[in-house]
Design a binder for these strands. Structure first.
Lengths: 354, 354
DNA sequence: TCACGCAACCCAAACGATTGGGTTGCGTAA
DNA sequence: TTACGCAACCCAATCGTTTGGGTTGCGTGA
């Protein structure tokens, strides 16, 4: 197989200037002004010739020379727990889109939700001289955000919030309430929560809001029915198995703060001989593309993931301009499907009867 | 909320040199030699002082100045169809890991499997002056690879192969055969294939190998039982619905070239009142983390996704060095689960009987 | 008539790092 | 004694852009 080898030298401002017989600074100014002539830098005619030649030769400014001179890179760094989590990958799509629209490039890195790795990755990005950071993996109580602030690094949070710092998230509080209202309305009274990681505001907020609303409705969620978990299918399965094994019987409804955890839990229930949607209702969160297509379609709270990513970029741009920004909590929407619908009533009723 | 504002100026070689009272070139050479002294650039004692101060001041070389001078960026560009596809996201994790180990950064972009966008993204990466490209989205017959070759851009392919160019992929041919052997052994004789996009070697190779092996075993796959599809759950559902609607009855086994398509198909079968694992066997591909946790665990072909990504980086490094490289096809492994196991025999038998 | 303004340019110093080629000054072999 | 080698440095050009500040030369108002 052929080995392509090195690329060829690119066209520079100097090349263009030489070919046109004018000075590079003139070329530079022309190519930077969007108007016809750059604040008197060149005649209309010269400007036209410059632009034509640049186009013809396929000139594209060297980003390193530019960055070296201007001290900014038009690059933003994004850190997420892991891109193989569809939720974060989708948010990143929004980030990439919005960044491209404002002529920025993005670097992404996985931190695997590890504190040391978060720091390490942030340092790598800063060493790359990114203009700002988007953190999608902030942990409750992490000192990283304080350090970044102290170092005057422009950044915003995404996905998870952290009080006192600007973030673009789903309104997880509303999301949790929607689920409580739904399960209550369908007739459930005995519920459990697969609550996610304790360091992630997503799981914490969804759980807290659910509980609060549930109480307001007159229900109760006993502590042993609130299970911290990983956010992936494996985590959901473990929590599901624990619920099946647990004392006091299986609840009639389970709220998993994440679709993947919900899927894992469904697996555990099924392995225990329970039919999801009949014996036990399951609700997830995020309404990833899988939810609707599962063998038993999953009720889930739809969060505007792409929009969350886009907003994060918009906010970061303002922060980089030194402006103040307010956090944005995007409203979610409950999508009811078979896993918790209609049949759920049966489970709840028979549980009451039994 | 506070607006962090701009970062502060970083330490430069000049700063270090001034503080030590020596010339910046000496500092540069010291910091670049891994040995005690740099080919006689400084005394042991000076070298020590330089390194100590650099560490103390937190010196990190400006990548733009370096790139400007050396004409290389230690950055590699990665283009994938979409990161929200767990398969590509996982391969990218391998890429990121391996790149970090050899001190390279990576840029990823989504092309959405659109030819124009592939070109556009590649141009953006080249404008960013990446040292090389990893393409995870090559289309059969695409001219992009030829153009890149003509321009002497170092690149390798990942995930999908393209004859004549170096690639790191799963051995999809073997994968397709494994599935054929398995379904045949379990007793199925009436099968269908949800074949994926026709421009992707993954789907094409898996399908072709399955068919070839199936014929060798004495079976047959009628053309109307080979359904091209998108790679996501929606695509699988559509294909599944078509199979259900189709003339000549539903096959007893279905091979979807992708786990997500398999999940979509399972949804369609279930909606039609068929029980997967009993009435119809389903096999997926890639063994994503979902497969094992589904309500009906999915038989799937495990492909070493992280390793495929890592290998792509290793290959690209060689290409960037001007060396020749051979394509690597990573061997897959069949993981049999409920969706096609045991019970499948029943379906096949009763189909024969009926 | 003459200075003054303005259009249309040019000049050169940065930005931070790398690197081929010096320049010292000292020890030592012939 | 002298030249030669070598260790330990320094010098300056260079990568491609940007940008504050010139310098021309021509038209024009007073």
């Amino acid at each position: 197989m052929k080995a392509p080898g090195k690329g060829r030298p690119a066209v520079t401002l100097k090349d263009l200037a030489a070919e046109l017989g004018i000075h590079v600074s003139t070329v530079s100014r022309v190519l930077h002004s969007d108007t016809d002539v750059a604040r008197g830098a060149a005649s209309k005619e010269t400007a036209r010739r410059v632009r034509e030649l640049a186009e013809f030769r396929g000139y594209s400014p060297d980003p390193h020379a530019t960055s070296l001179r201007t001290r900014r890179t038009r690059a933003i760094g994004v850190i997420v727990p892991r891109l193989s989590d569809i939720v974060l990958a989708t948010m990143y799509e929004g980030v990439e889109e919005a960044a491209a629209e404002s002529n920025h490039s993005t670097f992404v890195m996985n931190s695997h939700d590890d504190l040391d790795e978060q720091r390490r990755k942030a340092e790598i990005m800063l060493a790359r001289r990114v203009d700002g950071l988007i953190l999608g993996d902030v942990h409750a109580g992490s000192s990283l955000v304080d350090d970044l602030t102290a170092r005057h690094v422009p950044f915003v949070l995404m996905n998870r919030r952290y009080s006192g710092f600007p973030s673009s998230t789903c309104d997880d509080t509303t999301g949790g309430r929607l689920v409580a209202d739904h399960l209550w309305a369908v007739g459930h009274r005995s519920v459990a929560i697969i609550a996610g990681e304790l360091y992630a505001s997503t799981g914490v907020d969804r759980t807290a809001a659910f509980i609060e609303r549930w109480r307001a409705l007159g229900g109760e969620v006993p502590p042993h029915r609130i299970l911290p978990s990983r956010f992936d299918t494996e985590g959901g399965r473990q929590a599901g198995e624990e619920l099946v094994r647990g004392t006091g019987g299986v609840p009639t409804a389970v709220f998993a703060v994440n679709d993947f955890a919900a899927i894992g839990a469904m697996g555990a229930f099924r392995a225990a001989g329970l039919v999801v949607g009949q014996d036990v209702a399951v609700v997830g969160f995020n309404d990833t593309s899988l939810a609707a297509q599962l063998p038993i379609p999953l009720t889930s709270v739809r969060s505007p993931m792409v929009e969350i990513g886009r907003t994060a970029v918009a906010m970061l741009r303002r922060v980089m301009n030194g402006e103040d920004v307010e956090s944005v909590r995007h409203p979610p929407e409950l999508i009811v499907r078979e896993s918790s619908e209609g049949v759920g009533v049966t489970a709840a009723r028979s549980a009451h009867a039994g």
